[in-house]
Amino acid sequence: MPPRSAPDPEEFLPLHKDTFQILVALADGDRHGYSIMLDVAARTGGKVRLSPSTLYGSMKRLLEQGLTEELDERPDPEHDDERRRYYRLTALGRRVAIAEAHRLEKLLADARATGLLPKRT
């Protein structure tokens, strides 16, 4: 069998807004589910509140697509419950999140260029 080439991050775009929020939450460190929820809520000023169903539904697909992985070790033994599972962004996940961020940036730039949004001073 020929070696499988690494998937192109563009193939995953556009990401669902909840999926993107989860990837961003994992960008600065490994987290468990509740921690991801808190991070998303804090960053969005409480506007995005992921339900457990949305979180774990998205997480299942992220794991299947290889954008995140489950950790064997526990990075936070202090405040730990052994039933919790921790998740980490994979290299592919990071590239996909960056590609999505660029895509959003480009959209924003387009909106500015056409005068829809005020130009940055």
């Binding site: 589910g33 509740y34 929820m37 509140r49 339900s51 457990p52 169903s53 949305t54 979180l55 774990y56 419950d81 039933r83 919790r84 599972r85």
Partner: peptide, 29 residues
């Protein structure tokens, strides 16, 4: 794990209205 996260969220609420919102959010999800 979902049940665990749910209980965590309930525990963080300081009012019944907040608790109700968590319940509605979870059930709708």
């Amino acid at each position: 794990e979902m049940a665990l996260v749910f209980v965590d969220r309930c525990r963080a609420q300081r009012s019944f209205a907040g608790l109700l919102a968590v319940w509605l959010n979870a059930a709708a999800g």
